[in-house]
Nucleic acid binder design. Sequence first.
DNA 1: GCCCCTGTTGACAACGTTGTCAACACGCCG
DNA 2: CGGCGTGTTGACAACGTTGTCAACAGGGGC
Lengths: 334, 334
Amino acid sequence: MRDVAAAAGVALKTVSRVVNGEPGVNPATAERVHEAIRRLGYRRNESARLLRAGRTASIGLVIGDVSDPFYSGLSRAVEAVARRHGHLLFTGVSEEDPALEREIVLAFCARRVDGLVIVPAGTDHGYLCPELEAGVVVAFVDRPPGPGLEADTVLSDNAGGAAQGVAHLIRHGHRRIAFLGDSPAIFTARERLRGYRDALAAAGLPYDEALVSMGRPDPQRVRAALAAMAALPDPPTALFTGNGLITTHVLRALAARPGPDRPALVGFDDLELADLLTPGVTVVAQDPAGLGRTAAELLFRRLAGNRGPAQRVLLPTRLIVRGSGEIPPPARVA
Amino acid sequence: MRDVAAAAGVALKTVSRVVNGEPGVNPATAERVHEAIRRLGYRRNESARLLRAGRTASIGLVIGDVSDPFYSGLSRAVEAVARRHGHLLFTGVSEEDPALEREIVLAFCARRVDGLVIVPAGTDHGYLCPELEAGVVVAFVDRPPGPGLEADTVLSDNAGGAAQGVAHLIRHGHRRIAFLGDSPAIFTARERLRGYRDALAAAGLPYDEALVSMGRPDPQRVRAALAAMAALPDPPTALFTGNGLITTHVLRALAARPGPDRPALVGFDDLELADLLTPGVTVVAQDPAGLGRTAAELLFRRLAGNRGPAQRVLLPTRLIVRGSGEIPPPARVA
DNA sequence: GCCCCTGTTGACAACGTTGTCAACACGCCG
DNA sequence: CGGCGTGTTGACAACGTTGTCAACAGGGGC
């Protein structure tokens, strides 16, 4: 900028005015400056401008794992909203590790991002308090923050969706329905279990701990849990799986056990190609893009000055019936 | 920082020294400063530091669409490498639109990112030249940059992989093999077509334009192309699909037409759940994470000062045989 | 007592911008 | 001709940090 000023024979400030299209510059002078800008290939340093302005026009997004389609739909939506508001997006991946999450969040704060959208892995977000006081705005999505923190939060209706899925199985005559979920340390897993219990209770069915298995969503654990349930004197005739990964593990395990004793299956989270499987898989679908968009929009509303109390938004889920829960029908075309 | 200095009764510079752990500070003074930092909850402004330092310790990633699992695996790898090098990652989504890509890239450059990893949507990257001269480092991934630009590029072996997939079909006795690919405007689509032709030529089979359809990967177009081919006097007995999206469209179309005249199928790109379909889908799998990692590592090698000529890295693909290309076998367990 | 060396500290400028305010020239009005 | 408003321009400080260099005090050797 200094070079441009020298080349055009004007002061720094005049170049700044021209660059920002401020009024009150002689058209002839402006043309000289533009000429110099072109000749020197000058481009304003946005970081410096923002340092001066005291904002960064950027927000940070912390997710668990981009390669999960749930998170990628969510990040895409956040990115779109950020760009619409003229902000750039930092993306960080916590790998579901609270320590890493904290490290990433603090790195974002050190860059003075204007706001944060967080899919929290940890349960203690005390480390955020100083940042909040410093003016950073935070929205949580998919899971609520740890206790003691007031912040906008956007969640799926996990309990309601799970209840809907389980009710679907009950409507189709199932009485012994198993629940295979993620670790109870995870908020969504607990909520979905709650929905499962609600649905059983609503139908007057007993809750049987032997039909519930929660833990890490790895293939061995899922396979072992399935085997244990199959060995019960009164094995389940239907399964409700607590997330997409577990659904796929169960599908793989069931593929090894075809035939009429194959239990029905309803899963939380939609799966790509789920409609092409035989039998089709009925799912409770979330709206990842809706979650991301809503959270980002709440964030920008705060950045625009909204000082209301923290909101908690619950997004509905959608039951997509694809023929499971009945006797295996022929494949349906979407 | 000024407040900390005042609180500790020292000069600004001393606080800076303490914060950076520079030697030559009296331990007692350092303790006073630490005390003040704690009391005031001071946290260094990284943006200001980097402005001073003349770097931003951030890189930009431009991809076409996060919700495509190919891109999400790639971005995850880039993010991991960036963090390992102490850099933050800006993510931008071009939606495969050259104008948007350009806008995002220039926005990143205006922030003075140290480097860029780009999955190019456009074919003219002339707008990057001034940025390159200004010292930005760029690595292209998945597709090469437009002509006239020398930059590190990491590609999958598109032609080789396609040839391998088509050869698999030929080995299983197919002589009429169709190619359904993305728009010929897309580099990878052209390369995969080339591989298809190579494999035919290597087997002494004729190239029949009636068996080739390229265009936007939307369901209607794919369905129409399939119908047209099925209506040929000598319809194809096997299909090679040019990317994952087209493969799923073809699978949906084929699901409506079961039976023994169903053509065999091999697709470029692996699909989640592909092993659970009946029949299983054989694919030519790329390594999205490998692409991202390699591109990011080349980038950081440049940032570390490597001044060699631009490299072009070709990553191998992997044929995953899942029983397609033969008469439909029973489902296999992974 | 003088000099030099070392350890500690601070003043100042700089990174690349923009906000504030003052200066200047010009023309118009009274 | 003096005063004043307007249009144009520039000097300076500031954003929050760090590099450069100088200043100062204390101690040891001559």
